[in-house]
Computed example of a mutant assay.
Amino acid sequence: MSKQFNVPPVVFPNSTDDRRRRLPTAPFQPPNSSTPGLPFLSFDVNSAAASTSYSPAPQFPSTIVGIGGGATGFEDEPPLLEELGINTKQIYQKTLSVLNPFRIKHHLHEDADLFGPFLFLMAFGLFQLLAGKIHFGIILGWVTMSSMFLYVVFNMLAGRSGNLDLYKCLSLIGYCMLPIVILSAISLFMPQGGLAVMVLTGAFVIWSTRVCTRLVVELASCGDEHRGLIAYACFLIYMLFSLLVIF
């Protein structure tokens, strides 16, 4: 026996009025005021460009604000060499003071530096290289040991009143190496092992010894009463470097 189901009839719209009523809305079309819904975000480019206000690009001032709060320009900044602790004018004046062993300006060497001694040591190694000797490592090692030797000798002589530090010893020995550097340059044009080289070497060693002794005595306290022993230590140091030139 068959069952009957009550299904409501399906009605298809045939009239044009019904089609006009049920036209689908276009995408991104804002609803009219009569239709409730969520607020719509407009995607119109022209309206968005008109409604958007761009802030002007930031303008940086031409001055730099320092740590203390003051404004300083780029022209007021110190040079790069001066920021690195390299004073070329002071190095030039120290070099001239070493070149004149009879008028030594010891006040120029109160501020110790290592850039000038490093230049002299590299020049010494370069002249030795031109002579066929590679002594860069030996020179740097001997300068370090010589500075420690002078530091220990002076502080043992001066006791607790000694004020000569290792940094200043290294600076003084490096600057007083300038006569030995000149000797190494002159020895390139002279025969090795001759009497003239020996006499010239002795003169330049005495030159370096006199300058270094005078600077140590003037810059360190209690140095005048131990001048002879300080001069002997300096003589041994520069005689050691002169052996690299002779042999």
Rank of each mutant, 00 (worst) to 15 (best):
C234V: 07
C212W: 01
L236Y: 00
I230D: 00
C212M: 06
Y238V: 00
M239L: 11
I237H: 06
C234T: 12
T209L: 02
R227Y: 05
S221A: 15
H226Q: 05
F241D: 04
S221V: 07
D224C: 05
L240I: 01
R227D: 01
S221I: 11
G223L: 12
M239P: 01
E218C: 00
D224E: 13
C222Y: 07
C234M: 12
A231T: 12
L244K: 03
R227Q: 10
H226V: 12
A220G: 09
L236P: 00
V211K: 07
T209M: 07
G223A: 10
D224Q: 14
Y232I: 01
S208F: 02
L244E: 07
F247Y: 15
S221M: 08
Y238H: 15
L219E: 13
A231Q: 05
I246C: 07
V217Q: 13
Y232C: 08
C234I: 04
G223F: 05
E218K: 13
L229D: 11
L236R: 08
H226C: 07
C212L: 12
L219A: 06
I246T: 11
S208P: 04
I246K: 10
V245Y: 05
I230Q: 06
L236K: 05
L240Q: 15
F241G: 13
L215N: 09
L219S: 03
R227L: 00
G223S: 00
F241H: 15
A220I: 07
Y232V: 09
V216K: 12
T213S: 03
R214E: 10
S221L: 00
F235L: 09
V216Y: 10
A231E: 03
S242A: 15
F235Y: 12
V216T: 14
V211L: 11
F235H: 08
I237Y: 02
F235E: 02
L229E: 10
L240M: 08
C222R: 11
M239R: 03
Y238A: 00
L243C: 13
A231P: 07
C212N: 08
G223W: 13
A220D: 02
Y232Q: 15
F247L: 15
L236H: 08
V245L: 11
T209S: 08
C212P: 05
I246S: 15
T213H: 01
L240S: 10
F241R: 14
S208T: 03
G228S: 06
L243Q: 11
I237V: 13
I246N: 02
I237K: 06
S208A: 14
I246V: 15
L243K: 14
E225Q: 14
I246M: 14
R214M: 05
F247V: 11
Y232N: 00
L219Q: 08
D224K: 11
G223K: 03
R210P: 03
V216P: 12
D224Y: 03
T213C: 01
F247R: 14
L240K: 12
G228A: 10
G223T: 04
R227N: 03
L215R: 04
A233M: 09
S208W: 02
V211W: 07
V216A: 09
T213W: 02
T209F: 00
I230F: 09
V211C: 02
